[in-house]
């Protein structure tokens, strides 16, 4: 904090941060509890981690969460990129209508999207499970990918692709070598949003899944009805991975900058 921020500001920020982090620290501490209690810490133990790794339903939920997040991210990033480029060249009315419908899953409460998909899949008699969950995840991920790519395409010089074509590039080459590299930052952030949306989803997955196919969110929801400290163990692992990834993402640019400065001196 700089000189301008007073003592009250510091205390206030500290309280807000405590509010944010106490539940997280609490989860981590109680994942090492030797008893089943969620309220009294009775000694250090790794038994809940052991139980977690030996629990088939938990491991299966982790597996489904990761596989669906990866597939949904790859598919929605590819489809979203292709669509965004197509839309940027489409006429105004098509573009406006598609953008409007595209934003519906983002604007609507999740539960509305969820019941719509539930009714669609049931009416078409699609077997509920892995496929329905994957389709639903692709459905709500693509809008975010398109939304993060469109601004990059708008700021793109339309003459660039024309120049590539004039210089003898095929449309495919113009696309891959000129347009895609220019919008790469948008594609990457779209993919990141898609992955986290899919990884964290509960409401939509809960409504469209079936036949024992669960993700981590659904598992926590069904297990939380009874006290189960294994949930704390799996939560701690998720918290650890996210913290490390976010710190690395935020620290790498700083280190790079420092090296760059040193190199110049």
């Amino acid at each position: 904090m700089n000189k301008k921020t007073g003592i009250f500001s510091k205390i206030y920020i500290f309280i807000i941060m405590a509010f944010f982090y106490i539940p997280i620290i609490y989860t981590v501490i109680f994942s090492f509890n030797s008893s089943k209690s969620l309220t009294h810490f009775e000694g250090f133990s790794l038994q809940w981690y052991d139980k977690m790794f030996n629990d088939a339903t938990m491991m299966q939920a982790v597996f489904y969460t990761i596989i669906i997040a990866v597939l949904a991210t790859v598919i929605s990033t590819v489809v979203g990129t292709i669509t965004a480029i197509g839309l940027s060249k489409s006429n105004k009315i098509v573009k406006a209508v598609v953008e409007q419908i595209n934003s519906l899953p983002i604007m609507n409460p999740e539960i509305v999207t969820a019941i719509g998909l539930l009714m669609l899949f049931s009416t078409l008699a699609v077997k509920k499970g892995f496929m329905t969950m994957l389709l639903a995840h692709i459905m709500f991920c693509i809008p975010y990918v398109i939304l993060s790519i469109m601004p990059k395409l708008r700021s793109l010089d339309p003459n660039l692709a024309d120049a590539a074509l004039d210089l003898g590039a095929t449309p495919w080459q113009a696309l891959i070598k000129v347009i895609v590299p220019q919008i790469m930052p948008g594609i990457v952030s779209g993919a990141l949003i898609a992955f986290t949306m899919s990884f964290d989803d509960f409401v939509i997955s809960y409504f469209v899944t079936g036949n024992g196919v669960n993700n981590i969110s659904i598992m926590v929801y069904t297990m939380s009805k009874r006290i189960n400290p294994s949930i704390n163990a799996i939560s701690t692992i998720i918290i650890l991975i996210i913290t490390v990834v976010l710190i690395v993402i935020n620290v790498i640019p700083v280190i790079k900058e420092r090296k760059f400065k040193k190199g110049r001196n």
Partner: peptide, 17 residues
């Protein structure tokens, strides 16, 4: 950072507290 952690997990944490 907390926003990246699963909402169910964060809500579950309050149950113990």
């Amino acid at each position: 950072l907390p926003m990246w952690i699963n909402m169910l997990v964060r809500t579950y944490a309050w149950m113990g507290i």
